[in-house]
Design a protein around this nucleic acid. Structure first.
Lengths: 361, 361
DNA sequence: CGGTAGGCCGTGTGCGCACACATAAAAAAT
DNA sequence: ATTTTTTATGTGTGCGCACACGGCCTACCG
């Protein structure tokens, strides 16, 4: 039973018009009388017409430029991951005439973000993918996109607005809950756990707040176990001397500490400053499969890494723009990626998937 | 810096021949003198030619038929999952003229498998995707594919052979290791854990053996903890009366039992026959996100489910054939999917991904 | 009543490729 | 030397679609 595919020509024939007229109806180009238009539309739905994307993209013969605005990944290994996914995605859709226009900014440099945003707007791309790490500056970019009618997607951080095509990222609150659940396994009544933010200023503030909230909410469900929750903020995480002192002080002060939750991808910066026997004793949960964390994971110094799938975030971001621009499909407004629980025993699969990450269109 | 895409025409021009000749070289259709062929090949590599798949599939104007041979998913909810992934994949590539020819067999019915295999061979599809659950019969099918030169991929179970395009599945050994690791969290010195096979006859035997081996090997690394490993095979898993008796007897015999590892997706068939207080006490690890397991996972009666990503297995199986047939790409001979650790706190993401499953990997 | 602007619609071309067909050159057979 | 066969190469067509172009028909104005 071969279901023959319906072509524009078939519709034209059945509606008693030419292919050109059907085309005009399809693309809303006007110059079609109301009666004919209705007749064509009726035939279309009746036959269940579905445009052939293959032929369509071939005939368009047009290149779509997608601008990407991300932190330089030299400054932070985390950002190399979305970038990798983005590269993969562009590779996957290159035959559809989609090209990348990459822009980067310093991770803590608002001015540079703005400068690059302006450059992007001058180049007027067909779509924009960006990481809105600075709130005010991102608002500006969103507003500009709105005025110019440029579809845009945000990754990693969400800014509430009605215009963006979609947001792709992780659920920070839930990742805090999950971290608590994982640490909870090794805890006994009255034990203490610690939450550590290794972060500068208010950067990423919302994520950290959400994670902490999820973390605390989880333990609040078990008040009878009297788990004590400590919290520390550390800004000088690159100063190993200070880090060492901080940890010494910490363990002296809290001998019953059984678990530590590092709220971002910098767990390794603390773990490397811990005395080896402490690393084994304390259960540690961190984020993200970056090289330095993986070393400690394999040695079981870090017990769990929660994978926020940053590679997939980049990949899906580009694909969403592609689906919108080329395939003209609806895309999901909010796309939350899985929070993978990664241990020594299953880490290799995730790493390989990140590497390969080829897709299909 | 616009990198203009190279067309056949460009090569023809530069090599001083016609497009037809370049085409003959590209497809190895002969009738080209050695000198010209070499000249064309040189120009191709020099310009870095890459065929335009879009235009190619349009011009081919051919439909590829892929036969799928799977267990009926009415008989076992597990098999509904690969089937779902397969459906999604065919939907994703329908524009490329790839169509499915589905065949099913009873889960324990070798004869039906063979009958369907013969029907497939008569229909001589362009590719075959199948689940080689019966060893002998699958060998026959593989041999037939070899003779007829039909590319084929296997999912879920691997049969060593040099001809298949690829195998896509999980690493059973490693999933046993992972299960052990998860149970290990809640164990103290001298505790006992139990491994249960809810299976009929020698069906799936290799998988179960591998899982058991992985499970035992993990604990063998900690001899000083003297973890006692018990093992039971249960064939009458659908007889709730017998199951109930079996579990009663079990808990009476082994009061120190702290963890149970169910080696396939049927954990729920045992858990539902456990007294509620027992469910909470004992740590339970099972496989796969099927509805009945999920109910118990949400109630924390099952503590962990290991997700073997069966949906993705089906999806990737079809995509691999697609990559081979249409895109003419190399495909990875062995594709192992991640073993996701699923708990109440992250289960929803995985379920949603399975549903949507438009792309990814 | 002729001219023209504009609404409406059909035709033609090309996107890059696969493949059938035609043609030319060379080799083999008569 | 001529015919037949084989080999080598160029040309043309169509896949389904997007879009430019141009033709027809009507309405409105001078």
């Amino acid at each position: 039973m071969m279901t023959k595919r319906i072509r524009i020509k078939d519709i034209a024939e059945k509606a008693g018009v030419s292919a050109g007229t059907v085309d005009r109806v399809l693309h809303n180009r006007g110059s079609v009388s109301a009666s004919v238009k209705q007749r064509v539309l009726d035939v279309m739905t009746q036959l269940g017409y579905e445009p052939n994307i293959i032929a369509s993209t071939l005939a368009y013969n047009r290149t779509r430029r997608i601008a990407t605005l991300l932190p330089e990944f030299h400054s932070d290994p985390y950002w190399a991951q979305p970038n990798h996914g983005i590269e993969r995605a562009f590779q996957a859709v290159r035959h559809y005439g989609v090209v990348r226009q990459p822009y980067f900014f310093g991770l803590f440099d608002q001015g540079q973000f703005m400068a690059q945003a302006h450059r992007i707007l001058e180049d007027s791309p067909d779509g924009i993918l960006f990481a809105p790490v600075f709130h005010q500056e991102s608002k500006f970019l969103l507003q500009a996109c709105r005025e110019r009618n440029i579809p845009n997607v945000m990754i990693n951080t969400d800014i509430e607005n009605a215009d963006s095509l979609c947001y792709i990222g992780q659920d920070s609150y839930q990742s805090g809950v999950l971290a608590a659940r994982l640490l909870h396994f090794g805890l006994n009544r009255g034990d203490a756990v610690l939450l550590v933010n290794l972060e500068v200023g208010s950067y990423n503030a919302m994520h950290l707040i959400d994670k902490e909230k999820g973390f605390r909410d989880y333990f609040a469900r078990f008040p009878e176990q009297q788990i004590q929750i400590l919290k520390k903020d550390v800004e000088d995480f690159d100063d190993t001397g200070k880090m060492w002192d901080f940890l010494q002080e910490l363990f002296r002060e809290h001998p019953v500490l059984k678990g530590i939750f590092f709220t971002n991808s910098r767990a390794y910066k603390a773990v490397r400053c811990m005395p080896p026997e402490r690393r084994k004793e304390v259960k540690i949960v961190g984020f993200d499969l970056i090289a330095d964390n993986l070393l400690f994971l394999r040695d079981q110094d870090i017990d769990f890494l929660i994978n926020q799938n940053p590679v997939q975030q980049g990949f899906l971001g580009v694909m969403s723009l592609f689906n919108h621009l080329v395939k003209k499909q609806e895309v999901e407004r909010k796309q939350y990626l899985p929070l993978d629980i990664v241990v020594t025993e299953n880490v290799d699969y995730y790493l390989r998937r990140q590497e390969e990450m080829q897709l299909f269109v």
